[in-house]
Write a protein that binds this DNA or RNA. Sequence first.
DNA 1: TTGTATGCGTTATCAC
DNA 2: GTGATAACGCATACAA
Lengths: 351, 351
Amino acid sequence: MSRPAPLSPPTPKPADKLTIQDVATYAGVSKATVSRYLNRGGEQLSADVEARVAKAVRELGYSPSPMAQALKRGKSRLIGLVVADVSNSFSVAVLRGVEKACRDAGYMVMLFNLANDEQLEREAIRALSAYRVEGFILHTLGHDAGALADAAQLGKPVVLVDRKVGDAEVDLIALDNRSAVQSAAGHLSEAGYRHLLFISEPLKAISSRNERASAFQGFIAEHADSLSGAVFEARAGDDAALDEALRALRRRAGDAPAAVLAANAVISLRIAAATARLGWQLGTDLGLIGFDDPEWAALVGPGITAISQPTDDIGRVATHCLIERLQGAQLPPRQVLLPGTLVRRGSTRRA
Amino acid sequence: MSRPAPLSPPTPKPADKLTIQDVATYAGVSKATVSRYLNRGGEQLSADVEARVAKAVRELGYSPSPMAQALKRGKSRLIGLVVADVSNSFSVAVLRGVEKACRDAGYMVMLFNLANDEQLEREAIRALSAYRVEGFILHTLGHDAGALADAAQLGKPVVLVDRKVGDAEVDLIALDNRSAVQSAAGHLSEAGYRHLLFISEPLKAISSRNERASAFQGFIAEHADSLSGAVFEARAGDDAALDEALRALRRRAGDAPAAVLAANAVISLRIAAATARLGWQLGTDLGLIGFDDPEWAALVGPGITAISQPTDDIGRVATHCLIERLQGAQLPPRQVLLPGTLVRRGSTRRA
DNA sequence: TTGTATGCGTTATCAC
DNA sequence: GTGATAACGCATACAA
């Protein structure tokens, strides 16, 4: 038998463990030069040196350690994203927009899911702070102004998404709820529905739900001559109460057409289920339009008319707002309200 | 007027900017002592010193900088999570489990969403590597074995979730597809359905879809005396083809009951929509059972019977597997197959 | 234009 | 037991 083969040549360091020193040595220059090339893009470098460094970086596959950079610069290039509930399609959609925008801007996202647990909100801020995120995008449960105060006290910018918390003076990116409600209720009115019911999950401290409810009531007040309307809070699991609310709506309407405006996708779905239970046809027996436009909206019954939220934009704008602040912009708190889009489907066709 | 008030006392450093040195000074000890207290929990410390340090840490609200720790220890305590599509309810559910488990184990999650873009898979590995994640949990698109190779070459452990990629020899945590298919098909058979159709999105290179399809065919082959079955790949958007496949199924069945096994929730929904179009009643005219059990499954039609996946467990187990490897365990590649749960609903009741 | 030296906040190896 | 001190990988002020 032949002798064992000689040890394979010293495996090159994985790209991961390469330091700026390795690159410097390889290129025959000093660490500082490599650093300059990396940061200033070879601005103050001789063509020759620049080429050599570029080659070294390329061939070695070097990428600088964000840890070391963070330590040195005092900036982590990390953004903390706190989300009310990743199981909620709206949360996820925003998450998607945020993650993409952060990546494009050279930031990374650290995610913390509250799973609708109000206790966790402060914990989230603390945990992410410990990791030295530079700022927060917060889809809050609205209950804990303390968490927000914590962040503010740390001097870290916060951008709220979809929901305010307390009367905090921070940036907010959200749907233009008032306009959206008007366009939704207007659509129902144009379609001939005369008796409307706004149905939401319990309003609690969640600002978006409250805004939608009061915008609805405002709309009804303005059109009291032609429309009637009421608000109903549907408790999770209590289908009997929901069914009864719907029956009451149609009793009130008599022969006139009645319709429901659902405050979010969860409610839309429950109403679709309720109409099936009651043997009603969506559109003809009961109009339905709902906030949010999940993938199943087009496929349930005759299709559910929806107010589609520009979730990608919300995420993107929130990210940009935050990054602006990270770069030191000293602006007053902003509110960016984005328009929703009405998607007409069978559930609001009486034909 | 009195003179302006004296400057407020120098605001204490935000908890964020405190260093171990601040704590040491406050407690009247050296950095080394504080570090020892933090890491060994005051094992080799005099009671007196331990108490003072503990007090200092508590009162200042100090928490060490993960960056500095990462730099020094060569470990980032970061885990990279690559997800096929955050819009997919299965992906999200796994994400939830992973995030929770990581947090509990003192790791943080860096998220990368592929948005079903096969091009992005390598990019994801690279980006997360640059951030020095210690390992990956990968919900792959199955297309790019190269991405996996990249990770392996970096010497970073990878745990796959739900889907294999190529024939890579790495840990895999997934549903026990074979058993799940057997229990699903068995359930249909017991309920009296005789002619079955397995419907999936295009199988492509996605291992879970292929496994389910072939397990289905295996089951049919074993029960050829009492059952007939076929596989149909439904292209996105082509409802006509889907409708025709369903009609063909019932033609083939004649008077005998026919049922569909849907490979995931997207397909379940499309079939529910199709039956509505065709004017069929789920359960009586056509049986339906689907993989995945999203929140709307109970509310569509008479309720859709489902194979619920233990998504939280999948995420949790994947995380534990990964962490084991991070701690140096040198085990052969493992496959952990978790059982699904049959949730009986109206869509498989012929009564 | 390029190199040398310092320090970011930690942990770990020494001494004492 | 405890305290100096040297790295970890990088960016930068200063020297050359």
